[in-house]
């Protein structure tokens, strides 16, 4: 492995990741601030969320991140076939996340709960839907990585594109790891 003093992947994605994390950070801060002023409402509404499903989703994303790590490791050992398989596995995990989350959304909507129901749900839907779209985006990027892996575009020496996709995916995962306790658990 090469020595370097730059983060893995393309530097441009890190500028993007910084921007994304700032948005989430502001969102989280605003959530905390608003919650502090409406503790009862937030606690009460929080109980209607399905924590088990969210836990499953947390594990799903962490697992998918692990698969992505394996994918990068595989390409470094010049094993493009394994790399491809690991990415597909990660994508399937991403898909599972989306399905579970959609099920949750469907449940809320069937109960007539939406973005405008109250302040808690405003944050709940905004944050999770914003994150949901990030998972989708991450999957699009990983899919592009998979195609390129298949085409033999990555080598042990040069697989910046894959590292870039992996970095983004880890960010998406990390945001959820903050989001999960913040919205579903913390009281």
């Amino acid at each position: 492995m090469k020595n370097r003093n730059t983060p893995p992947g393309d530097l441009a994605i890190w500028i993007f990741i910084m921007a994304e994390l700032s948005v989430f950070a502001i969102f989280f801060a605003v959530y905390a601030f608003t919650r502090a002023n409406n503790v009862e409402l937030f606690n009460e509404s929080q109980l209607t969320l399905d924590r088990n499903l969210a836990l499953i989703n947390t594990l799903t994303l962490i697992t998918s991140s692990y698969f992505v790590v394996r994918a990068v490791a595989a390409i470094r050992e010049n094993n493009a076939k394994h790399c491809f398989n690991w990415i597909i596995a990660a994508l399937l995990m991403g898909l599972l996340f989306l399905l579970v989350k959609s099920y949750e959304y469907n449940h809320h909507y069937s109960e007539g709960i939406n973005l405008r129901t109250n302040k808690f749900y405003m944050f709940y839907f905004s944050l999770t839907f914003f994150h949901f779209m990030h998972v989708l985006m991450g999957m699009v990027i990983l899919a592009a990585n998979a195609i390129k892996t298949r085409a033999g575009n990555y080598t042990p020496e040069n697989h910046t594109g894959l590292e870039t996709g992996a970095s983004y995916w880890h960010m998406v995962d990390m945001v959820w790891i903050i989001l999960f306790p913040l919205i579903y658990v913390m009281r």
Binding site: L11, I13, V140
Partner: peptide, 17 residues
């Protein structure tokens, strides 16, 4: 060593974003 900050990546982020 490969390029660490490429125009094509910047372009993809623009389109994707």
């Amino acid at each position: 060593m490969s390029e660490t900050f490429t125009k094509s990546m910047a372009r993809n982020i623009f389109y994707g974003g």
